[in-house]
Design a protein around this nucleic acid. Sequence first.
DNA 1: TGAATTAATATAACTGGTTATATATTTGTA
DNA 2: TACAAATATATAACCAGTTATATTAATTCA
Lengths: 174, 174
Amino acid sequence: MYNQLYFVICMDFLIELKNAGFTSRLKRLSDALLYSTKDFYKTVGADIEPNWHLVFLILKRQGALSLTDISDQLQLSHPAIIKIVNNMKSKGYVETKTDTVDSRKQIITLTELALVTLPRLEAYWAAFEETVQDIMKDCPDFLTDLGKVEENLRGSSFKDRTLMNLNSTTKQLL
Amino acid sequence: MYNQLYFVICMDFLIELKNAGFTSRLKRLSDALLYSTKDFYKTVGADIEPNWHLVFLILKRQGALSLTDISDQLQLSHPAIIKIVNNMKSKGYVETKTDTVDSRKQIITLTELALVTLPRLEAYWAAFEETVQDIMKDCPDFLTDLGKVEENLRGSSFKDRTLMNLNSTTKQLL
DNA sequence: TGAATTAATATAACTGGTTATATATTTGTA
DNA sequence: TACAAATATATAACCAGTTATATTAATTCA
């Protein structure tokens, strides 16, 4: 009952927190999109995970890439890419071979199966793009603003900025 | 070498993807904030996790709450709250007792330790709020726009919208 | 050339969320 | 009142990222 009511009058604890709720709202939204995407793939019977998308894309566009090439460009950690690639490999979508010049490197490429499957996946991804456009229809600057936030954090991290703010406030009190 | 260059000229594979990179950028940002926050707590020597923040806040404001009260209001799943509460309990910040009226319910409250620790944590959270303000200084509508996106998705989920988009495109081809 | 440094990959352990499922208690109703 | 349905909590299994650490190969430089 209480929870029903809570939604009906559309209170949202996180939104009420204003700036203090920002990071949690971002995570909540990000998670919602992630699990909704998983659900979508399950419904349409596609045997892939949401986070394979970027790896499919980058390999299709750039051909053979090493693990670190991928992790650098996607700005994800190496272990993250290793896991994704291993999973894609186990489903037969990518194959790896050690570089002939530098035997430390694993060169990753899409398989025939991947190339055959891609058109179907690309139809899904086009539909997702449309959805993204839809949900941002009434806020056309959202993506640009997101870029500004990313850019600001590139200059100085969330942690560093907060340490600075903490220190300046503490000093003011003295 | 390549990866260095990649950053210097500030190319970003996800940003180049435009709408197709939206969800991944949201996740990347959300994760960056999360791990930066963990790092912050570690640096200042606070023995708490980022996701305890909301539970601290809601319990301070609303006093005793059941697990479902919390999960409904924060819009997180029950298991998520159970884990957070168990961790907070193991550190002595909350205590639970079964409701006298409805013995299914676990009533959660902040402990003395929590109340004593809160002022220190609140100083951190105030600094975080400042940081949020800082990184959104040049995009004052970002939070409002985030609200619009959340609102749009409340109407129809990411998955449902995408299924619709997929069907309408497919039909157009016939 | 040999030793120290750097780079690439791999693995372990962790946090943080989700579904799916089970169990016990309450509530609603025939 | 008894039984079915709903509610509250708990647990298992999973996916998705991180940091920290180890290992091996390549590079640098004295």
